[in-house]
Amino acid sequence: MVTRDTSRRLPSYAAGEIDVPFVVRGTEEVIDRDTFWEEHSHPTHELLWNRRGASSAAVGARVWTITPSVGLWIPAGTPHSGRTPAGTWHHSAHFSIRAVPAISDAPVAVEVTPLLRLLLDRLNEEGLAPDSRTKTEALVLDLLVPAPVELLLRIPESPLLAPIVAAVREDPADTTTLAAWASRLGVSTRTITRAFREQTGLGFSQWLAAARVQHAITLLSGGEEIEEVAERVGYHSASAFGTVFRRVTGMSPGRFRSQ
């Protein structure tokens, strides 16, 4: 049976617009088909993470990859959208802004350690005594710290770069060189490089590597073999892919899969 992408629409709230009757409340869902979450915002702070698989969340031109070990903190009232592939075991935790100060005024990656996962699971247990809940919530808040590695891709919004972005996001293995793009777009390679740096902080090749790694993370989280992933994102060998993956994420593809 062929499944089609589904779109979910959620309301948009300002920070604190609804006074929620909890400190931390979690939800979880195994996503049965590729899902796009239309732009929305919550009255609460939100932590997104996955027990299985990789998803993404976008705030403006920034796209974060969310995995079992790297989540995303989204401050209350922040408009965001997202994509979740089929099979992802998706989690979110909402935090009252009355009881929980924001760990950051802007979205930031959060390290989701095994202990943090266990504590968040405990808060979802039925019949948890009030005193135990209070202690568990305090431990959760103590463990919410920015991750050492942020799986973030900035999408340039320049019309000049739009064809490049579209081609790479459609096929990360696209082999069009910087010189070929310059010829196709009728500009110099320096113009393209300058535009990428101004809008993303990266040159063309660095941005291409980051885009490929972001796509590779989703494939690895879906269980594909490292050699297959390397080929699908444009690398002729697993070793070359591993070098780039390690440079972008701080870990090898094998270590990432084991986590």
Results as ranks from 00 to 15, higher is better:
Thr134Tyr: 09
Arg52Gln: 15
Ala58Gly: 03
Arg169Glu: 06
Thr67Pro: 00
Glu150Ile: 05
Arg122Cys: 01
Pro163Asp: 00
Arg51Thr: 14
Pro146Gly: 06
Gly127Glu: 10
Ala138Gly: 14
Leu160Lys: 06
Thr84Pro: 09
Thr136Gly: 05
Ile74Phe: 07
Thr136Glu: 02
Asp105Ile: 01
Ala57Arg: 04
Pro148Trp: 14
Pro172Asp: 07
Ser96Ile: 08
Gly60Thr: 00
Val140Gly: 15
Glu157His: 12
Ala93His: 05
Pro114Gly: 06
Glu126Gly: 15
Val145Gln: 15
Asp171Ser: 13
Ile74Ser: 05
Ala102Met: 08
Arg133Asn: 02
Leu119Thr: 02
Trp89Ala: 15
Asn50Cys: 13
Ser56Glu: 10
Leu144Phe: 08
Pro130Met: 11
Thr65Gln: 04
Pro156Gly: 00
Pro75Met: 01
Pro75Ser: 08
Asp131Leu: 15
Thr134Val: 09
Thr175Ala: 14
Ala54Ile: 14
Leu151His: 09
Ile164Gly: 01
Val168Ser: 00
Ala86Met: 12
Leu120Gly: 13
Lys135His: 10
Leu128Pro: 00
Leu139Ala: 14
Ile97Pro: 07
Glu111Lys: 08
Glu170Trp: 14
Ala54Gly: 11
Val165Thr: 07
Asp121Cys: 09
Ala129Pro: 07
Pro75Thr: 01
Thr88Ala: 02
Arg133Ile: 10
Ala58Ser: 14
Val149Gln: 12
Pro79Tyr: 00
Asn124Tyr: 11
Thr84Phe: 13
Asp142Asn: 14
Asn124Ser: 14
Pro85Phe: 08
Val110Lys: 02
Trp73Pro: 02
Ser96Cys: 02
Thr78His: 09
His94Pro: 02
Trp49Met: 10
Val100Tyr: 06
Pro172Ser: 04
Thr113Lys: 01
Leu118Tyr: 03
Ile97Cys: 01
Ser55Trp: 13
Gly71Asn: 08
Val165Asn: 07
Val63Ser: 12
Gly53Leu: 13
Leu151Met: 04
Ala99Gln: 08
Val112Ser: 13
Pro159Arg: 05
Arg98Trp: 06
Pro79Cys: 01
Pro85Met: 07
Val149Thr: 15
